[in-house]
């Protein structure tokens, strides 16, 4: 694997995480429990869409075949999307969305803080912008974890259920493989495994604070980085790609 191939994959992975998670967050627009939260979740969907645009545009440049952000976002087959599975799971109830945001934003905050030191100038610049957004998402999710965890019996139960459902999808965020190794050698990529303990500490601290049992070690689901998805992914693409696929000659 050449450095260029690895960098292309790396950008696609990060771009797809943002692309697919933003799709799920955007499903809350007009559907949130209160207007204030409708605006907040839509804002996060906007942040992530912006991040997806930057990363997919850069992926297209590295590939050098003239593919644009939209070619990459809308014209790939399912097996060629490389987001982590946690991004594509259904939006679920509000607790599910908040827990997913807590898990991913905490990881992203740590990850993008490291990526600001990347030898790749474009990635470092994208990271500098992203790290602020991720921190804000993390704080917002943490505030809601406290409200739900210490609010009512029902909210506490829903929070626990969401944590239980999503935990098996958190291992993937810290996996490493050839793509990462090639780029780590050049000081371009982040050491995924190295940020895991800080992530775990933050999550365990906040869950303990609200009296939720921290799940022990368990089997972790995987496949996203290889393009092997959950059954939900096909439905996202069916909807997202509808206009691009129906009118392949049109520009919008």
């Amino acid at each position: 694997m050449t450095e260029k191939e690895a960098l292309f994959s790396y950008c696609l992975r990060l771009g797809d995480d943002a692309l697919i998670h933003s799709y799920r967050l955007s499903e809350w627009c007009r559907n949130a429990p209160m207007l204030e939260e409708d605006l907040a979740l839509t804002n996060f969907a906007l942040d992530l869409t912006g991040r997806a645009r930057a990363l997919l545009t850069y992926a297209g440049e590295i590939e050098g075949k003239g593919r644009t952000e939209d070619d990459l976002a809308y014209r790939r087959e399912e097996r060629h999307y490389f987001n982590n599975l946690i991004c594509e799971l259904p939006k679920g109830d509000f607790a599910t969305t908040i827990v997913r945001l807590l898990f991913t934003a905490t990881q992203e905050h740590l990850f993008y803080s490291e990526l600001t030191h990347s030898q790749d100038g474009t990635l470092a610049a994208i990271a500098a912008k992203t790290v602020k957004e991720a921190q804000y998402h993390m704080v917002h999710a943490s505030d809601w974890v406290r409200r739900l965890g210490l609010g009512t019996e029902e909210s506490h139960e829903r929070l626990e259920r969401a944590i239980d459902e999503l935990c098996p999808y958190t291992g993937e965020m810290f996996e490493t493989d050839k793509v990462v190794a090639v780029l780590q050698d050049k000081n371009i990529a982040v050491d995924n495994a190295a940020i895991r303990s800080n992530w775990k500490t933050y999550i365990e601290d906040i869950l303990r604070e609200v009296g939720v049992m921290v799940p022990g070690s368990q089997h972790m689901q995987t496949g996203g980085r290889k393009g092997i998805h959950t059954e939900y992914m096909g439905h996202i693409l069916t909807e997202m790609q509808y206009l691009q696929r129906t009118y392949p000659d049109a520009t919008w």
Binding site: L19, S22, Y23, S26, E27, C29, R30, N31, L35, D38, L39, T42, N43, A45, L46, T49, G50, A52, R53, L56, E69, D70, A73, Y74, E239, M240, Y242, L243, Q244, A250, W252
Partner: peptide, 24 residues
């Protein structure tokens, strides 16, 4: 909101989300 998940480009998705957010 009926068209957010089917917006035909990333730019279109951003603009539509921002617009609906304004309405909210």
């Amino acid at each position: 909101g009926n068209w957010i998940t089917r917006a035909p480009s990333l730019r279109a998705r951003q603009i539509l989300l921002a617009k609906i957010q304004d309405e909210g």
